[in-house]
Design a protein around this nucleic acid. Structure first.
Lengths: 196, 196
DNA sequence: AAAAACCCTTAACCTACATCAACGAAAATT
DNA sequence: AATTTTCGTTGATGTAGGTTAAGGGTTTTT
């Protein structure tokens, strides 16, 4: 894969969601830059301003929050064709409340707030795209929140496996525990119980 | 207050966030209709398609989810100048996973999906407004989610009181418990402890 | 190849909050 | 004004998942 292929991947992603002209495709491609991350590298870090919004071309990231007791909580995993960023920090230039770390060698396309504003001015149709994407993210998070407050760990685990089959091959088990909101010990215990 | 005043309230809300012309103000005002709700009436109901998006002119709603065991979970309260709706259902015409009920006599401005699409075509600047609003909602929900998985009930209660002082005068205590993700009995016990 | 770091499991014990049940007060309905 | 419904409180008991500690396997680093 080369630079053009990566940018085509993003342009295709966009073209599937809104109508854009070839000219606009090009403007979009020019607005983003390619970055590569080795496993364990950080895309952005809690406490620092997150001035990038990333489109994952290949690889996986975990986006997580470290609480006041030092415990990590995975908010979501970003796979191929997903977005990773901290909207709040990106839009307000305040320190991020989240970190994003590569779980494997990964490639992303990134944009900073200034470039994004320029891009939106040049291609106003993208206002709609990002509205739709944000709406989608909101509905996904809403479902996740309601599941978290209404279902126990076993039910949340089953839901995750149903929704993301194969995730257990991609992500270490203690990260899955963190996503589920339980400790690794509890997930281990739980899985043992489920085998009966 | 009369019809014009209500619509001015919405137009002012919008004008504070994006630039709009007087002509656009008028188009927006015409796109929404006024509805009134008596205490306990439903704005929309889980299991039915939510074909309205509402701007709360006055009053309060609780937006909640009824889980598979029949327990209710408050996702949020919508006060004056807030929006209430189920984005997922509104945009996909699928049955809503949420209900919204008036906690007191309330007045709202509503729009349906068809009218909203028309409105967005007539006033494209609103694409940006709704993107910003949805982003804001997403960051609020994200914070709420992370607090829910990282803090205990006492900490969540303190955070709520800090962020929404006066909410205890506006909303019955068992609804606050539901928002906090605990039972009314637990909140009652908790508050007793806190007095010491 | 050795050392270090990371990951998973198991077990004993603990705690925050749920569950169940009962009571009185307040508010809404008749 | 009487009745019903809703609401907040308290107490006894239960439990999902947290905590602590320890051992062994696997992967990464040197």
């Amino acid at each position: 894969m080369n630079e053009t292929a990566y940018k085509n991947q993003l342009a295709d992603y966009i073209a599937q969601r809104i109508d854009i002209t070839p000219k606009e495709r090009e403007i979009i491609a020019n607005a983003y830059s390619i970055k590569t991350f080795k496993k364990k590298q950080f895309l952005f870090e809690q406490g620092h301003i997150c001035d990038i919004e990333a489109f994952v071309v290949s690889g996986t990231f975990r986006i997580f929050y470290v609480d006041t007791k030092g415990l990590e909580h995975v908010l979501y995993f970003a796979f191929k064709d997903w977005w990773a960023g901290d909207i709040a920090s990106f839009n307000s230039a305040e320190p991020s409340g989240l970190s994003a770390q590569a779980l494997e060698d990964s490639i992303v396309l990134v944009i900073d707030p200034t470039k994004k504003e320029e891009l939106l001015k040049q291609v106003p149709a993208l206002e709609r795209l990002f509205r739709l994407i944000t709406q989608k993210h909101l509905t996904v998070l809403q479902k996740r929140f309601l599941l978290t407050v209404s279902a126990n760990a076993v039910e949340r685990y089953n839901e995750l496996i149903k929704r993301s089959p194969g995730i257990e091959q991609l992500v270490p088990q203690h990260q899955i525990a963190s996503y589920l909101g339980i400790l690794p010990e509890s997930l281990s215990r739980m899985k043992k119980q489920l085998l009966k």
